[in-house]
Design a protein around this nucleic acid. Structure first.
Lengths: 130, 130
DNA sequence: CCTAGTGTACTATTTAAATATAACAGTAGT
DNA sequence: ACTACTGTTATATTTAAATAGTACACTAGG
């Protein structure tokens, strides 16, 4: 895993784990690696992982049992909720940012569609480089 | 000005100044407040403002003359360029984030439109609270 | 009981950002 | 020359994030 030096590592790890849950890469009830193993894995300090797990537990995303391990919640509502939270956060940040550049809602939608068209061109090109 | 504790103050000030230029609140060739005055204004340390000005000068957004002051560039190309850079950054961050939640391009556009509809409802309600 | 694996807690250190403070250096107006 | 404004540089201190290392506490399995 690669980190962006501009944002705290522990926040990036939280984000990654939440995405893995949302995408189904981590299943409900599944056991997470121990803090020590996760730390080795990410080449990060144990205390940093500890902080990540504590924060995730505070949010109800994982459940930790001393001596046993940490497990993804089986409460689907919480998972739906964090998915919604993350999407809202992205939308809000994007819209506020674009409006702050002087764009109307219509401008923003157009801008997004144009950008997506470009991306789709690239994707298509990558799929058949024969 | 209010700062988000999660991101370095100097980056937030750079962002603010660039937006003010893009929106025309700061005109081409206009003189910026001295580092000391800006520091007082933002309730921030002089060194922090100094760092901001240095960074903006490195990008060509402002031109600094020792003993005289710092001035917004008159090169419109640079201003267009940073506007494009900021929009691209927002688009990239938004799209990557939403794709990372499992959404297709179509999902993302729909999501944005829905969100905008909600915002427009709020705006309309705020305009006539009679 | 013992051991291996787990979470938890504590202290010390490093690093980058921000602050506080002071000094240095160039420019313009008087 | 003097003064008041400008940017620039430097040193020391504070704070939060991250690291390093150690110890403690709980659980399950043999």
């Amino acid at each position: 895993m690669e980190f962006d030096a501009r944002v705290p590592i522990y926040l990036q790890i939280i984000d990654k784990i939440q995405r893995d849950i949302i995408l189904g890469r981590l299943k409900e009830g599944e056991k997470l690696p121990s803090v020590r193993l996760m730390a080795l894995d990410l080449k990060v300090n144990v205390n940093t992982v500890q902080r990540v797990y504590q924060e995730l537990e505070r949010e109800g995303v994982i459940i930790t049992q001393r001596g046993i391990g940490s497990f993804i919640t089986e409460d689907e509502e919480i998972i739906k909720k964090i998915r919604q939270q993350m999407a809202d956060e992205l939308l809000k940040n994007f819209l506020e940012g674009m409006k702050g550049l002087g764009m109307s809602f219509a401008d923003i939608v157009k801008c997004l569609k144009d950008y997506i068209s470009e991306e789709e061109k690239k994707d298509a090109a990558n799929k058949r480089p024969d």
